[in-house]
């Protein structure tokens, strides 16, 4: 159980999702990945990606400046 961080700020759709996928080998079952991204479509995209791949999206929230942070449990 480790929390790992991934910064996707400044990246546009679909690059944040691609980064998450590229990060998968470093994750073990139960690990939490925290992602920061400022692409406006990131919240809907990460939700859809989690639904598709069967991962648990713990939360995804906007910090008020257009930057979103999300946590996924693997």
């Amino acid at each position: 159980m480790a929390v790992k961080e991934l910064n996707c700020e400044g990246l546009k759709c679909p690059q944040p999702i691609l980064k998450v996928v590229a990060f998968i080998p470093q994750m073990e079952a139960g690990d939490i990945l925290e992602i920061k991204a400022d692409c406006p479509s990131f919240p809907t995209d990460i939700k859809a990606w989690c639904a598709r791949t069967g991962k648990t999206l713990l939360f995804c929230m906007d910090d008020g400046t257009g930057c979103h942070s999300a946590q996924i449990q693997f």
């Binding site: 679909p14 999702i17 692409c39 479509s41 809907t44 995209d45 859809a48 990606w49 598709r52």
Partner: peptide, 14 residues
């Protein structure tokens, strides 16, 4: 109407 990215769309399409 909604605004979305490619992953959201593909989740629908697949």
């Amino acid at each position: 109407l909604r605004y979305c990215g490619v992953a959201t769309f593909l989740n629908d399409a697949l």
